[in-house]
Design a protein around this nucleic acid. Structure first.
Lengths: 343, 343
DNA sequence: CTGAAAGCGCTTACAG
DNA sequence: CTGAAAGCGCTTACAG
């Protein structure tokens, strides 16, 4: 409530002396300083931010744009948010979470309320990248948009993810595989992970002369999965491996459906799950995964943004793309076709 | 980059006219307005926030104080954060996440950067409540501190949680129970859920003439649990029920330990898990739970805060405490002692 | 070592 | 319908 004027009056000095005493940007006699601090304490004085902001100081805040709606899956959103929050905190910044779809990012970027902007869940044709292309503050994108003028994009290497999955199957000796995709709408929406990974799977499969059947989860529940799987096996009875781009629940249903059809995972069928969160170990049998890696990706994105904010790294003009390597979690669910394992 | 002056110059009007044209707080002739907007667009003009802030407008931002450190368990933190974020978004506010332990809350509260403050993970003797007791902006606390001057506290009804658990065991006919507590340090730290729930369990147990053995998880892993359980049963062989205040992994270990000791849950032993996240259904057998309810609690906290921010609810002087009722998830893990169930 | 004054970018009574 | 000017709460050259 108290302003700099009250403090000055109470301490019997001018407002400039109060300002200097508190900021320390000019030496002030010990006794004056003591009186000022005393008065400030008594009045519970706190400098109001817009005063400082008007002079162009940093805010110590990073904006995190992460649109959520009714359909946002908490479990997918959280690891990324937590990853950003934790690393930002480590770097000395707080996070302003912007959850609006239509948040006026350009306005915020130039309003001086934040030092930098991090875009989360960026799709290949994300409109937000245009909004901030020429913003006053630096921008980092988690996920690669097709056009990233002025921004620095950090993402997992989904091309590598797709290639690696196919490679594993090929090395194990599989020639006919099922690509089990997520809901078709999500590909339409341009979700980075889905679109780019599928593309890599397709082209790698062509190179390796694999026969690929694609099926998509166009509904909910175990029943949908049963139907998909039996249709796929009917279409190509030689299928001996599945590359799945669905969530853990979906994989759970897949495992059951395959068992019900007499093609149990482990002995008759090989399975890899893509883009998951490392929870494949809880399934029975445990499944190989190439997981998303929220912490490395978010951590790197924050680091790059902070470096730009603090002037230690130039802002890219034409856009830079940095890919985080993926890792393969081997749990024994990929074996040579027709040769049962021990587990 | 461009300021109001540039826009005014380009449009050939005064800065006040620009301000009014953009804010709409005074009627401006159509042609003038068009010229102003045109100029603003061409220059990419965005009002800088401190200008507006200096006039005392709201910021549309709620501060969420939620200290995290190396030990913060992501899975426990996230549901609460997401709950707050989602509801805030619904109410038209963005969230500024403050993750520092020593964040200067008082300074922030009075700096005009946020419209209200939400305290998360509030312990019974939380120092933050004092910091904000006389802040300029309203404060809501998620969790009940012992002294909550000037704040509105929302919390789950942990007294009811403890009472309800004991009641269920009593009704089923149990007379000797094991109270399985979390790490003793956490009680020392004054974690609301732990301290208050335990207190209610204890007093309800006394009222019901139950014989209670208390054991605490003073280590990690299955081995610790095995040791605890066998000691408890050695101390009181008549124990036929467990009220557990540990996480799902702990309950998993408990179930295994009891089975190994020839007292399987379901037939020989009854179990209730307290303060969990509804995941008891994945255990085998599924366990009864009285879960934490992050969404109702966070939603209510945000609603109350927003009402105070928007002046539709007075700020409490002496502090108000509101308790969210708990719910009991019955999965059949509580049965009469010695009488095996069907499952 | 200290103060009076200009200025940050805006908003809004006060005049016209 | 519009403008000149005061003011928001600070910071910081400019003087002394």
């Amino acid at each position: 409530m108290a302003g700099i004027k009250e403090v000055a009056a109470r301490a019997g000095v001018s407002i400039s002396t109060v300002s200097y005493a508190i900021s320390g940007k000019r030496s002030v006699s010990a006794s004056t300083r003591a009186r000022v601090m005393q008065a400030a304490r008594e009045l519970g004085y706190v400098p109001r931010s817009h005063g400082r902001l008007a002079r162009g100081a940093g805010t110590g805040i990073i904006a995190l744009s992460s649109p959520i709606d009714e359909g946002t899956v908490y479990g997918d959103w959280s690891p990324f948010f937590f990853g950003v929050a934790r690393r930002s905190h480590l770097r000395g910044y707080d996070v302003l979470a912007l959850m609006g779809e239509d948040e006026d990012l350009a306005a915020l970027a130039d309003s001086g309320q934040v030092d930098g902007i991090l875009l989360m869940d960026v799709t290949v044709d994300d409109p937000r990248t245009e909004q901030v292309a020429y913003s006053r503050v630096p921008v980092v994108s988690l996920g690669c948009p097709d056009s990233l003028d002025g921004a620095y994009a950090v993402d997992l290497d989904f091309e590598q993810m797709g290639r690696l999955a196919v490679h594993r199957m090929v090395v194990a000796g599989h020639t006919h595989i099922l690509f089990l995709g997520a809901n078709p709408d999500a590909y339409e929406e341009g979700v980075n992970f889905l679109v780019r990974t599928r593309k890599a799977v397709r082209s790698s499969a062509v190179d390796a002369h694999l026969v690929v059947t694609e099926k998509y989860l166009d509904g909910e529940g175990a029943h949908t999965m049963d139907r998909l799987v039996s249709r796929a096996l009917a279409a190509d009875p030689q299928i001996s491996a599945v590359i799945g781009q669905v969530d853990t629940m979906g994989m759970f249903n897949l495992v059951r459906a395959l068992a019900a059809l007499g093609r149990p995972v482990g002995s008759a069928m090989s399975v890899i799950q893509l883009g998951s969160f490392g929870r494949g170990a809880v399934l029975d049998p445990p499944l190989d995964e190439i997981p998303l890696r929220p912490y490395p990706a978010c951590g790197r994105a924050v680091d790059v943004l902070v470096e730009m904010v603090e002037g230690r790294r130039p802002r890219p003009g034409k856009g830079i793309k940095e890919l985080i390597p993926v890792i393969y979690l081997d749990r024994g669910s990929v074996r040579p076709p027709g040769r049962p394992g021990k587990g």
